[in-house]
Design a protein around this nucleic acid. Structure first.
Lengths: 198, 198
DNA sequence: GCACTGACAGATATTGAAATCTGTCAGTGC
DNA sequence: GCACTGACAGATTTCAATATCTGTCAGTGC
């Protein structure tokens, strides 16, 4: 019998998210996804070549959500130092909220991220690209000393890892972490404002 | 029969390290340690109340090794900026060497560290204490702008996490990581030299 | 008395047979 | 022709039995 709604990659991804949410990354199976959609698992394989590809697509979708809000900050008109602090704060706040609101779901996506390092690497490139935009405009306006924007963006990303890398999620509920974040931001912003690195 | 050599905590720790090295953290048992020492496992429990206490003692011993070399650098007479860079480089090099030379042993100690967070926290306090010493002397000599040495030391530790936290060990074999380390160091040292954070 | 042993109970880990899952593909129905 | 099904082989996971381990303590020998 033909389905009421056609089976699309998007509907499959939605069902996969739901199944992952309900069963967790270890127990979620393609059969579960098919069952949730009321189709046979063979049909799922018509749209995603492997279970890994399906999970990768879900991972990508999840990571892409993070881009939008931050992208707006990176291209705003405020002074670069302010935009940079806002951007890093927004990233930290978003991650911390997700980790705190639903730790299980966060752990699920952490597991997905761990098995899709290439997708994560692409996500990080997008993120450091936004940081580079801020640094570049700061240099152009004379706020920051001239420097290699991409190298600096990567350094900013690396140096703030404790406040966005999910492996540290357990520490984000510690009240002192806000202070630590402030201290690192101060140091980094100070470093940008100072005279150029030789 | 009385043993040829008396059973001491130190001998037990040595045997435990050997057993951990041979069997890994998941398979190493107290019975294995006792067997390696030629005693009954009951004897081991006369010196360490639980298996967890034994593993914690091994963890502490391992972490303490790291202190000595770095401590010398932190108290040397060189300019603070140079000492700081040397200290961070030495820490990174030591960790990277350990991770690269014997990944299995490194993974073993990583597992031990994960189950002894209080011991690790004490280790980190010692480390940031050494960083604070460098910062303090840099401020005293006028190399660095005045600042809270401990807060700054913690920020330096946090910001360089990617280059000493074992969770990132897999990335340390990437040739680009040296560049990334240099970029973060440049930014941080620049931040210290610049005028004080308000 | 002292350092050690070894048997024990309850907790944890291992193992292998049974169940489930992944990925394929010939077949079904429209 | 097209979207989907469902049976299948091989891979993986589950589960319960079996074995091993942890931590205790009364007992042994010096």
């Amino acid at each position: 019998m033909p389905p009421e709604t056609p089976l699309t990659p998007d509907r499959i991804l939605e069902a996969t998210e739901e199944v992952l949410r309900r069963y967790g990354p270890a127990k979620a199976t393609v059969v579960d996804v098919a069952r949730a959609l009321g189709v046979s698992h063979g049909s799922v394989y018509r749209h995603f070549r492997t279970k890994a590809a399906l999970r990768e697509a879900v991972t990508e979708r999840w990571l892409d959500q993070a881009h939008d809000q931050l992208s707006a900050i990176s291209r705003a008109g405020a002074p670069a130092a302010e935009r940079l602090r806002d951007w890093l704060s927004a990233l930290f706040a978003a991650k911390r909220r997700k980790a705190g609101d639903d730790p299980e779901l966060f752990a699920t996506y952490l597991a997905l991220a761990a098995e899709n390092s290439a997708t994560v690497a692409r996500h990080i490139e997008t993120m450091t690209g936004q940081l580079a935009t801020i640094v570049e405009s700061g240099v152009a306006r004379g706020e920051f000393a001239p420097r290699d924007a991409h190298r600096t963006a990567r350094a900013l990303w690396d140096a703030t890892g404790r406040f966005h890398d999910p492996v540290y999620a357990a520490e984000w509920s510690d009240p002192q972490v806000e202070t630590a974040f402030g201290a690192v931001c101060d140091l980094l912003l100070n470093g940008l404002r100072a005279q150029a690195v030789p």
